[in-house]
Design a protein around this nucleic acid. Structure first.
Lengths: 293, 293
DNA sequence: AGCTCTTATGAATCATTGA
DNA sequence: GTCAATGATTCATAAGAGC
């Protein structure tokens, strides 16, 4: 059985990527350390310096990405002193000046966002997924992320009991998601640029894990099997694990040694699952949580 | 019975507002002509010139808004030449430089977005609702936009079939199915900064009507009864009509005479409805379609 | 009441043509 | 060429009728 590589590199992506050739990766998908967040783990780049910190790395991304490749940046500015920071807006403008095309801004709607209540603000339930490209003609497999139409649910679920319906929505490992694959009919719909995903962060001890469904969606949309994915801010390794599951090769760069260890373990699990399942039918496993429409 | 004024002013808001005193309005909510849209009707401000065109008007808004007031700007950049325009980002930065606080960015998720299919893009299903303030201590009635759970808890839940459970959940995307036991017994829930509204703009022949639920939500959130609302780009009069329905005073400015006529008619209808209904119980009518959570 | 079917309708994009 | 205008194409949802 064919295996797929998942390289974990320890270091700053700025220097690590310098060793890679140009036009090398098919997709870059990442959730970078947010400005002024995770101070204890990442050193906390201040909002004012964020663009200056990011730009040289963005230059490397631009170099190593294939012409038909895509760069997905998951980021959201936090509120401070009663205002939203503007560094993300400035980053978009700066990246365009650097040569990137700002193709699209996807909205990740976090259905179960962090609870809380403030006198002058509601809960923040969305993040930006910024799409950048080198050229206007990039690879895009729209069919790979098609979702069942709304009516499909009614038709299929009407024979189920109420408890099953409830479990259907609680998705994660409910034992129901696995079955979805079996009866996804012909009635599929293209998604829009608003993604509805839960924030399921698994059981890892990572400070900023994004849910597997997020990288999964973009990997399926922008790469083929066997393509090469890069996450320059890997964290606990979600992107590489998902890439492996989806039979893509991947490189993950992480500056913190502890996270590299977590990521290695994650990859091994994913590799084992791939073997277990791939040997049987080659299908992806744990289809679980991609409620996108 | 008390009535509420809804003044329709014909002209460019830049000059019309010059006649108003400072610190006069409690809320400004508007959906301005988008760059390069409605060329035939508005003259089409090009994206490159949009910020320059908007800023002097933003200055007037800043002047006439009360210190505890709020300015809501509904806008979305279009795709051109394969890229998203950046003029909205630049506008945010420019407005901050002008003295505004960029307090929040709400996402209006358009459930029924415009159709279409393209090789490198999905359908655009969201718009920005940018919140700006003069001070950090602004008026905000969070309770006024809470999603009433009592309505269907008492009246509908027991009559809900299992399909309704699924359908409702897919509509609001709130994890209803998962939390069904929690909702029962709770009367209301606070929304997040993601609004789920359909785009139905009624039966008017206006090229850019936003749905009534959008201004309604912000009017209820940021004003009290009897407060004064301004829409400097009134269009066919939605904002004023909604304000009237909600027992707020309002001023609407519109540069096109034809739209002023439409708006006047709209107001009259709203006024009649208010009388009809207000005489009975003072409740808002036609609460219709604000699927917000 | 619940389910199925039908129909109306959206602040859109892109490719093509013409000035 | 560059730029502007025009047309073809597109599809998920809500709402309503009918059984």
């Amino acid at each position: 059985m064919k295996t797929f590589t998942a390289d974990i590199k320890h270091g700053d992506c700025l220097t690590v990527l310098a060793d890679y050739p140009a036009n090398f990766f098919d997709l870059i998908v990442t959730s970078p350390p947010y400005a002024d967040r995770r101070k204890n783990t990442y050193g906390g780049i201040s909002p004012e310096k964020y663009v200056d910190w990011f730009l040289p790395r963005g230059g490397q991304f631009l170099r190593v990405l294939k012409p038909a490749g895509t760069f997905i940046l998951n980021i959201k500015e936090k509120a401070e002193n009663g205002e939203r920071h503007t560094f993300v807006l400035e980053l978009i403008l700066a990246l365009r000046k650097q040569g990137w095309l700002w193709t699209e801004e996807f909205i990740w709607h976090k259905r179960n966002c962090y609870p809380g209540k403030w006198p002058n603000r509601f809960r923040d339930a969305w993040e930006r997924c910024l799409q950048f490209n080198k050229t206007r003609h990039f690879k895009m497999n729209q069919e790979a992320v098609m979702v069942p139409m709304g009516d499909w649910k009614d038709a299929r679920l009407k024979s189920l009991g109420k408890n099953d319906v409830v479990r259907f929505d609680s998705q994660v490992g409910s034992g129901f998601g696995k079955n979805i694959e079996n009866w996804v009919g012909r009635e599929k719909a293209y998604p829009s640029n608003v993604l509805h995903l839960a924030t399921e962060c698994g059981n890892k001890s990572h400070s900023a894990a994004f849910p597997e469904a997020l990288p999964e969606w973009f990997i399926r949309l922008f790469t083929d099997e066997g393509d090469l994915v890069l996450d320059p801010f890997l964290g606990s390794g979600t992107t590489c694990a998902v890439a492996q599951r989806l039979r893509r090769n991947s490189v993950g760069v992480e500056i913190l040694a502890d996270y590299c260890g977590l990521a290695e373990a994650e990859i091994k699990t994913a590799d084992y699952q791939l073997f277990e399942n791939g040997a049987k039918n080659g299908k992806r496993i744990n289809s679980g949580n991609h409620k996108v429409h």
